[in-house]
């Protein structure tokens, strides 16, 4: 498989997952803001911008952290590369560049989603935000289902899995980071009783509320964090996503569990082991630092994947191998 193709498939999946996660974050915030007193509008909406990490871009275009500005910035704002419309558009551009590699059904679905999102307008979104965000979420899910059902599960599909799960792990960590800090500081301590709707909202933003409820009868901060970080049965927990990423990479390199083939696999293996053997109290001692560190490591994994598969100058069978190949050919002749 061409490196360019693998890279496009990887980013197609990442951008679509990002669009879905941004939609999740805003949707759940709308719900939560209905319950919040109007004085804390700022408190409700400002973290959205922190999660996506584009504070400078936001303040350059908007004066206040209110529902309207933040929604505009995160959905359709052309100057925001991580806005839902930008992400879907970039997912589509990546798909278009490798159209012969994906199934017709995948292309059709991504195209449909793209056209419905870019044709949306802010007034409609504001009138009925829930419809818009569930369209993005459902559109992404439909694409994932179609991908699994119509594309051969070969290398290309594995790169899609890699991109999707790496992004999802990153986004879950981001949501947890921002929301946790906001909630804990707001409630005066992490051990305070947590009947708060905000915790429910956090779980819901990851589609985790009902699975959490089935697993735990009590709503407790540390349990919520534990669930979203470590639960290996829940498909949006960080540990689940990283296991999936690691397995997809191993299927690509065809390497056994105890013999990682490249840096990306080594980094991921270590991260997965850390998540397996970590005590939740260690993470909670400074959750922000823990999650920040996690995000840095995920960035390294992304870089390492690029070095192993996308950039021929850094690959073992790359440019340096040409001379050996040509010599071998000449000796045969």
């Amino acid at each position: 498989m061409l490196s360019r193709v693998a890279e496009s498939l990887f980013w197609m999946a990442r951008y679509l997952e990002r669009a879905e996660d941004v939609a999740r974050i805003i949707a759940v915030n709308f719900q939560a803001s209905l319950d919040a007193p109007s004085a804390s509008q700022e408190l409700t909406w400002e973290p959205m911008i922190t999660i996506t990490g584009d504070r400078d871009l936001f303040t350059a275009a908007f004066a206040r952290y209110d529902a309207e500005s933040v929604t505009s910035f995160l959905t359709l704002h052309p100057g925001n590369p991580n806005a839902i419309a930008s992400c879907i558009s970039r997912a589509r551009e990546n798909a278009r560049a490798v159209r012969e590699q994906i199934s017709r059904e995948m292309w059709e679905q991504l195209n449909r989603l793209y056209h419905s999102i870019v044709n949306a307008d802010l007034a409609t979104i504001a009138r009925n935000p829930y419809d818009f965000f569930s369209e993005v979420r459902n559109g992404s899910h439909l694409f994932q289902g179609i991908t699994d059902a119509t594309m051969a599960h070969t290398e290309g599909w594995e790169f899609i899995q890699t991109g999707k799960f790496l992004e999802r792990a990153d986004q879950t960590a981001r949501i947890l980071d921002v929301k946790y800090n906001a909630l804990v500081s707001n409630m005066g301590g992490e051990t305070a009783p947590l009947a708060s709707l905000q915790w429910i909202a956090l779980l819901k933003s990851c589609s985790a509320f009902e699975p959490y409820r089935r697993a735990h009868s009590q709503l407790q901060a540390w349990r919520v964090v534990d669930f979203l970080l470590f639960d290996r049965t829940f498909p949006r927990s960080v540990a689940f996503c990283l296991d999936q990423t690691r397995d997809a990479l191993r299927r690509i390199s065809d390497s056994p569990l105890d013999r990682p083939a490249n840096t990306a696999e080594r980094l991921l293996g270590r991260l997965c082991a850390e998540l397996t053997y970590l005590d939740i109290r260690e993470a909670l001692a400074d959750l922000h630092m823990f999650l920040d560190d996690m995000q840095h490591k995920l960035n390294h994994v992304g870089d390492a994947i690029a070095q192993s598969y996308f950039d021929v100058n850094t690959m073992p069978a790359g440019v340096a191998a040409i001379s050996r190949y040509v010599q071998a050919q000449q000796q045969q002749q």
């Binding site: 061409l2 490196s3 021929v312 073992p316 040409i322 001379s323 190949y325 040509v326």
Partner: peptide, 17 residues
């Protein structure tokens, strides 16, 4: 996607050239 070296043409793939 293509690269030449010593008058040969190669393509850049995930397994190398």
């Amino acid at each position: 996607d293509l690269v030449t070296s010593e008058n040969r043409v190669f393509m850049r793939t995930i397994r190398g050239l």
